[in-house]
Computed example of a mutant assay.
Amino acid sequence: MGHLYQDKKIQNRVKRLQGQINAVDLALNTPDASCIQILQQAAAIKGAVNGLMNELIEAHLRHHVIGEQTAINETELEEFLKLLKRYS
């Protein structure tokens, strides 16, 4: 997936994840950090990773599976992506 270095949306998601992981690391090293707060941060990371996976799958489909084909049914593709996101 060498084409992903150009995708700002994906790069921004990764940077956000890095920030969230750093926040958990900091909280884990803070004696008075709340367990609930750390769990909430971990849940946010889980959601962010799922979002990143969805973006990567869509980028892969568009770049490698569909490619430069001209006859793409965008409606079907969007329905498929919605379904994929719902179950991931």
Rank of each mutant, 00 (worst) to 15 (best):
E68A: 11
Q11T: 03
I10P: 02
V24G: 07
Y87N: 09
L39N: 12
Q18W: 00
L28W: 08
K8I: 01
Q41K: 11
T75W: 00
C35D: 13
G2R: 08
E74R: 13
M1P: 06
A23K: 07
A23H: 07
K15W: 01
E55K: 10
I45C: 08
L81S: 10
Y5R: 13
L77H: 07
M53P: 00
L81P: 11
L84Q: 10
G19K: 04
V14A: 02
L17H: 03
E74G: 04
N22Q: 14
N29Q: 14
H63W: 03
E74I: 02
E76R: 03
T75N: 12
T75Q: 14
M1W: 06
N73T: 01
L83N: 11
V49S: 12
D7C: 05
L83H: 10
G47H: 06
N50R: 10
I36V: 12
T70S: 13
L56V: 01
N54K: 02
Q37T: 12
L61Y: 14
D7V: 01
A43G: 12
I45G: 09
K85M: 03
R13H: 04
H63I: 00
T75A: 13
Q6M: 04
S88T: 09
N12K: 11
A42E: 10
R62E: 15
I21Y: 03
R62V: 01
E58L: 14
Q6R: 06
V49H: 09
Y87R: 04
A43E: 15
